[in-house]
Amino acid sequence: MTASTACTLLQPKEYKSGVKPVWCPGCGDFGVLGSITKALSGMQIQPENAAVISGIGCSSRMPTYLNAYGFHGVHGRALALATGLKIARPDLTVIATGGDGDGFSIGGNHFLHTCRRNPDMTYIVMDNQVYGMTKGQASPTTDPNWEKGKLTPGGTGINPFQPLVIALASGANFIARSSSSDSNGTARIIMEAIKHPGFSMVQVLSPCVTFRPEQREWKNIVIPAPIDATSDPAKAARRLLTDEGLYTGILYRGERPAYQPALKSSIDNIEELDEEFRL
C-alpha cells in the first residue's frame, strides 16, 4: 500500500487495519465496517484524527479492524470513555460502536446520560437482538416471545427496549436507522451523523446469522422512511413509536447545542491557586 499524501484521496480500504475480523461469515457487522470506512473516506477524515471507541461484544471488536485511533474497553462503558476523550480532545472525530447488549443493557445508564449530555460524537449500534459473543442469549431488544435464548427458554416475557424512542426522550440530537445490507446508505447516514452537531444515534439492523438466522430477511423488509427527518421531537416520537422498528433513514435532527466545556491549553496560573490558602 502506498502512503497517502495530502493530494491523494484516502480510499475506504485505507481505513482498514488489516487485522482479520472474528465475526462469523455472513455477519452484518462486515457491512457496517465497510460503511464506516466509506464514511471516513467520504469525509476524508485523516486516520489519526478519528477515534473509534467500543465496549465488549462482537460488534465492539470494530476499532481493531480500523486504521484509526481506537479503544476497546470494558463492557457497557464505551460512551463514557468516548465522552471523556471528546471533552479532552474536541478536535477529534469520535465514534462509539457496539451492540444492543453493550449499549442498552449493561451500558443503559450511560446511553441515557450521553443522550442528555449531548457531546458532539456519533454512536453506531449494531442491533441484532441477541448476545452473539456469549452464544445466543436474549438482549434488551429481543422480542419477548423468542424462545431460543438459552437462559430464557420460554421467551423473556418482558418488553423490548426501544432505543430510538429512548434516545429521543433522553435528548439525542440526531436519530437514524439503517440496515447493514445497505452499505452505501449506511455510510451516507454515518456521514450525516458525524456532521450533525451533538450526540448522533445510529441504529443499524445488523443480522446475527448464527443465532438469529431469520434476520437474514431484514434486508427485504426494511422500508425507507416515507417522510423526511423532523426537528420536532413530538412528531419524531409519534413516528418512532409506530414504525415497528423497520423504517430506515434519518428520523430526527435536533437543534440543541453540543456539550463542550471550555478547555484551554497552555494556561498556567497555578501559583494563583495558592492565594486562597495563604493566611
Binding site: 477515534a51 471507541i53 485511533y69 479503544f71 474497553g73 470494558v74 457497557g76 462503558r77 463514557a80 470513555l81 468516548a82 465522552t83 471523556g84 476523550l85 471528546k86 471533552i87 479532552a88 480532545r89 477529534l92 445508564n109 450511560h110 441515557l112 446520560h113 466545556p261 471550555a262 478547555l263 484551554k264 491549553s265 497552555s266 494556561i267 498556567d268 496560573n269 497555578i270 491557586l273
Partner: peptide
C-alpha cells in the same frame, strides 16, 4: 488553569471518562 471537571452519571462513567481523556 485550562482544565475541566465533569460531574458524571456514576462512578463507572467517571472512571471510564477519565481513561478516555487520558487516552487523548
Amino acid at each position: 488553569v485550562g482544565g475541566v471537571l465533569v460531574q458524571a452519571e456514576d462512578e463507572l462513567a467517571s472512571m471510564n471518562q477519565v481513561i478516555g481523556a487520558s487516552f487523548g
